[in-house]
Amino acid sequence: MTDREAHLVELVDEAGTATGSATVTAAHAGAGQLHRAFSVLIVDGGGRFLLQRRAAVKTRFAGRWGNACCGHPAPGEDLCSSAERRLAEELGLRSVPLTPVGVHRYRADDPETGRVEHEYDHVLVGRAPADASIQPDPTEVSEVRWIDVDELRAGLDSASPEYVPWLAGVVGVWLSAERPAERSRER
């Protein structure tokens, strides 16, 4: 397996326009460099979210609960293809089509490692049944669980250090995208 920290990420400006590239390590050091990323939310038929606890060996926010999958497309790489590949690598979930629903731009310092997340984070959503075969890669994920959206929102509202700092924003992007769809179905 290659060292993921040596992979290249795409640096971007505030509007998400590509400006160059850097290694994962360089993009997450010092003040951090704004770069393209993705966060995948997997939702089941009951509206529950699939969460993963990040493995203890992760270089940023290890041991915290986060969305189903996160990653960085290589410079110029197709966003959905990259996210679908990472979803298969991290959780063994294949053939789950992903739909982009918005962007969450954020910056978060990890007090444990001194590294920083400064990301132009594309939020993608996929649907999977709660009984889907999930096979976590132990170098990425220590455990998974399904959680009701109201329970998740209560935990996020309490600013619990149990969760990664970007999760509230990512869930907010999804909820904002879903509300118009729900209103149109009610008509």
Score class of each variant (00 low, 15 high):
E84V: 02
A26E: 15
T139R: 09
G47C: 01
H104Y: 13
F38D: 05
G155V: 01
L91K: 06
P73M: 01
A26W: 02
L124N: 11
G16T: 03
V141Q: 06
E84C: 10
G32F: 04
A181S: 11
G126S: 06
D3K: 14
S184A: 13
P180S: 09
S81A: 13
V123G: 02
F49R: 04
P97A: 03
V40Q: 00
S82R: 06
E112F: 14
G66K: 10
H7D: 14
L87R: 05
L8C: 13
G172L: 01
Y106A: 14
F49W: 15
L98V: 12
E112G: 12
Q52W: 00
D150G: 09
D78M: 03
V40W: 01
P73R: 02
E90R: 14
E186R: 15
R54W: 02
T113A: 05
D13C: 05
R4I: 10
D131Q: 07
Y120H: 08
H7V: 09
L91A: 03
V170C: 07
G47K: 11
E10R: 09
G20A: 01
E140F: 12
P129W: 01
E143A: 15
T2R: 13
I147A: 06
W166G: 14
Q135M: 10
G66Q: 04
T19A: 06
R127I: 15
S133Y: 11
A22R: 00
M1F: 12
E84Q: 13
S158T: 10
V144W: 08
V12W: 04
A88N: 07
G155S: 05
L93F: 04
W166P: 06
D157P: 08
A132W: 11
R4F: 11
R4T: 13
N67F: 06
S184Y: 08
H72N: 15
A168E: 03
D13T: 03
A108E: 11
F61V: 07
L124Q: 03
R179K: 14
S142G: 02
S82E: 05
S184K: 09
G92W: 07
E186I: 14
I134E: 00
R179M: 06
G47H: 08
A68E: 08
G92L: 03
L87Q: 07
L175A: 12
V149Y: 04
H118G: 05
E140S: 10
R185E: 14
E143Q: 11
L93W: 04
A37E: 01
N67S: 13
R48T: 09
L87V: 11
G155K: 00
C69L: 01
E89T: 01
G46D: 15
R145D: 00
V96W: 03
T113N: 05
L87F: 06
E90G: 10
S81R: 14
V171Q: 04
I134P: 04
E151V: 03
D109F: 08
